[in-house]
Design a protein around this nucleic acid. Sequence first.
DNA 1: TTAGGGTTAG
Length: 746
Amino acid sequence: MVQSIFNATKLVNIYAYLGDVLLSRETFDQIPRKDTYTWNSMLSSYVRNGYYREAVNCVNEMLLASNVQPDFYTFPPVLKACRTIHDGTRLHCWVVKMGFQWDVFVAASLVHMYCRFGSFDIALKLFKDMPTRDMGCWNAVISGFCQNGNANETLSVVDDMRLEGVDMDAVTISSILPICAQKDDILHGMLIHLYVIKHGLEFDVFVSNAFIFMYAKFGKLECAQRIFDQMVVRDLVSWNSIIAVYEQNDCPHDALMFFYEMLGNKFQPDVLTLVSLASTIAQTRDSLSGKSIHGFSIRRCWIMEDTIIGNAVVDMYAKIGALDPARKVFEELSCKDVISWNTMITGYAQNGLADAAIEVYRMMKDCEDFTPNQGTWVSILPAYAHIGALIDGMRIHGQVLKVGIDTDVFLGTCLVDLYGKCGRLGDAMFMFYEVPRVSPVPWNVIISCHGLHGHGENCMQLFRDMLDEGVMPDHVTFLSLLSACSHSGLVDQGKWCFDVMQHNYGMKPTLKHYGCMVDLFGRAGQLDVAYNFIERMPMRPDASVWGALLGACRTHGNVELGKKVSDRLFEVDSENVGYYVLMSNLYAKFGRWERVDEVRSLARDRGLRKTPGWSSIDLHSRIEVFYTGNRTHSQHEEIYKELAILNAKMKSLGYTPDYNFVLQDVEDDEKENILTSHSERLAIMYGILNTPPRTPIRIYKNLRVCGDCHNVTKFISKIMEREIIVRDSNRFHHFKDGICSCGDYW
DNA sequence: TTAGGGTTAG
């Protein structure tokens, strides 16, 4: 039995301090004659533990009770609750009525609350009208602006404060450092660091934590680490920050090391630790750890309560490539926000599953609760670009223009990519000149678009323009350039780029760069050069490098080298069906059917199935897909009939079918039928039948276009007087008047 | 430790 109100109230406070609000309330309820001190304690118990709604209800109860009067301790904590639940005007009236408006603690709480509501006029008026201001009042308005992301207003208040001769304290510093990080203002950040040292504030935990975060944003890992090392006392935020430093700067193993060290120091991870950890695991692609993180957040019930951790887990699974678990977590999120949808769409798009990305985007649009934003468009546009859905992509462009954010560098770059990949180079160039071009990314995209169209010389010119504008190329720039040179037969320029990246920019080529070089030599028929190049590589060639050479052996018909290369290739990758197909194609070209069977049965024994070839066409906002030999389409009879008529016309103009591209050992008549039913021809004929004369036809083929279809498309473009743009898995083929823009080099 | 203003995330 507790002896006095005073002691009973002490217990309310102790339970609050220990985080047990229920026990705190139980004790409070048992006190028969509660005084102001008792009520104030209960209120702060709620607020301290995040029970904001309850705090507001409790203060209403108190204000209506006749036997007790609030004092200047009553309002500050409740106003803190009000700003979080966005409901404080009524309480402000009470404050005024009771005459506590100009108590410095109360006034500071009011100012901060109105800043957080975004009602800056009210906040500033209150601030200016205060009869006395202390440090807390200045900080209330400064942090209020900061937390609403109003960087410029914040800095102007800081200037006013210093003009009045008031020095910044630790609270001011830790409020404004995130603004320096947000504005990428290294100079001010470092000046503040000097100020902190001069004023002896460097041992404040909040200040140190804010510096760790700021230096991490600037990419200055050593500075962040030095501050962390010098800290005398570290809290959970310090550990979370140092983990995030390494996670955000692509050093997942260091991030994990600090996580284990944190556990060793007896700190329990919180939601924020888990969010960083999920991103870390996504980088290491360790699916087992991914499952542990997911399990941990389920056991703590965080995934149910916190959308951010849910989104982080969806993102983690998607980055690991585990789309089914990602989708399951996404479906089960109790509260989805726009970012949840964007994460799921990006997950599918980045794993090449454009159809699934589009399906999720449609579901999102059907939900009236969510309005697509910049993030949504940045995630869906690459999916449309991937499948060549120009009309859908243009619809997004329309929405972007309506909102007026078409010069956003991320969106602009996605639009450049869309137009480039959909065969509209002119529109891509137009968009490119609309976006800011200080980062190499838009340059890389436009160079890669020109490369896909076989315009190698344009790519070299763009590269020169980029350097003239003072933009630093990165690894991707050189990949785009090398690939462009390779598709355009610019062997010397390709060699020059490879040399420049190493000697002028000090970049070490990656496997991908080596792969491009092999492709460059291989396509140009310099098979021995390519082979010797691989032999001299300073790292172990992977399947893509050998695969590039095997493709060249197929194009240039070198069976002996092809055999040698495929042996090396299957040593490093025996699971990729594409390489078996390439090898069997090579044997088929020379009629070595026994070898063809051998390679095919090898692939079969390993449980590999050939990817079926298909082509698609985007007509009247509907994507029609044709598989090779398709006879189920509603117009298939008409399509085949027209193709037969076309065949006869082509032959009169000198066309002879190239049976090298038939991979079955059958009679010539049958070989001709097989060629006629290739998916790209079905899609082109469908386009011709369903669009007005002379309109261009754009189709997409999931594999590489076969040589015979390439030849036939030239004839079709002449006979039918159509411009035909075919995008395959490799590049663009632009046919007009019987000629292909690639000059038959691809 | 009955009160205001501070740091970290998808």
